[in-house]
């Protein structure tokens, strides 16, 4: 059963067609990857799902309920969390606090309870700290909990972003290039982490340029080029797909082998430039 469903989703920025009539299915409990050349519209897809942008056309549903027009924070409380391509941590907050912020949508204490420090508020704060530390422990960051987020090493910052997203207790996790800027060792660790997360029942939707990572852990790979889905399949199928190779290497690279129909497809998508 599909958890997240995109139907005919189109996103225009002025004259620019960033996402073009996209149909996408993110099945529950799997690791799905979205790949494509720079500017293909991958991040835009994430922004559409999480309500940062409203799709020009089309519908996005999650477990049968439509997400169109919801505020981002409501999407998050529905159980969809994400990370960012360019790390966006709360830099002047501590590592622990960054994760604590993630619990906002799962806790209730308002200003009145805070002002009077009611028993309920204190208990909730205690719980948040404990749960945050559990998450940090999972990401090997508990030793850094009192450091400022900005003082973490790059790879640690990437992990902290995932930790913060997990604090919102999502069922679907969108990761936008989590391995960007990581060395091979860190990437391998990240791979293990993602698999572990999937094994806890989480659905993972991954945007990534690192093909080793993508092909290593994905169950389904979708390829986007100029906002259009040009291929979908298992990692093996995608690796052998000529359209995909062409999209990555540029028109003409495989032109001799190209079937005329696919050729047409690609030239059409180029016109959106």
């Amino acid at each position: 059963m599909a958890e997240l469903l995109l139907k005919n989703v189109t996103m225009k920025f002025g004259g620019l067609l960033a996402v073009d009539n996209l149909d996408l299915e993110v099945p529950s409990g799997k690791i799905l990857s979205l790949i494509g050349p720079n500017g293909a519209g991958k991040t835009t897809v994430f922004n559409l799902i999480t309500g940062v942008y409203k799709p020009t056309e089309g519908t996005i549903t999650y477990n049968g309920e439509t997400l169109n027009g919801l505020h981002s924070n409501k999407v998050v409380s529905r159980g969809i969390a994400r990370t960012f391509q360019n790390i966006r941590l709360f830099n002047s907050m501590t590592v622990l606090e960054n994760v604590q912020v993630g619990f906002h949508c799962r806790t209730r204490s308002g200003p009145v309870r805070a002002l009077f420090k009611t028993r309920h508020e204190r208990q909730e704060e205690k719980d948040i700290i404990l749960k945050s530390q559990e998450i940090l422990d999972f990401f090997g960051l508990v030793g850094h909990q009192n450091d400022y987020a900005s003082n973490l090493a790059y790879g640690e910052q990437r992990r902290l972003e995932i930790a913060r997203a997990l604090a919102t207790q999502p069922k679907l996790l969108l990761l936008d290039e989590p391995a960007a800027g990581m060395n091979p060792k860190e990437t391998a660790e990240l791979m293990e982490l993602i698999i572990k997360l999937r094994d806890t029942g989480l659905t993972i939707f991954l945007v990534e340029h690192d093909m080793l990572l993508v092909m290593g852990i994905s169950e389904v790979v979708t390829v986007l080029d100029y906002g259009q889905k040009i291929a979908e399949g298992t990692p093996k199928e995608i690796q052998q797909n000529e359209t995909v190779i062409e999209a990555y290497l540029g028109t003409g690279a495989l032109s001799k082998k190209k079937k005329p129909e696919q050729q047409k497809n690609i030239t059409r998508s180029r016109q959106h430039d």
Partner: peptide
């Protein structure tokens, strides 16, 4: 001080630091 140390205070600082990230961490920024 109590507000600063509370869930609401953290949300405020998160908004100060990065409003988009705060909203996407589940904080109703408005």
């Amino acid at each position: 001080r109590r507000l600063d140390n509370s869930r609401i205070g953290r949300a405020w600082i998160a908004i100060r630091e990065d409003e988009v990230a705060a909203e996407l961490s589940g904080v109703p920024t408005t």
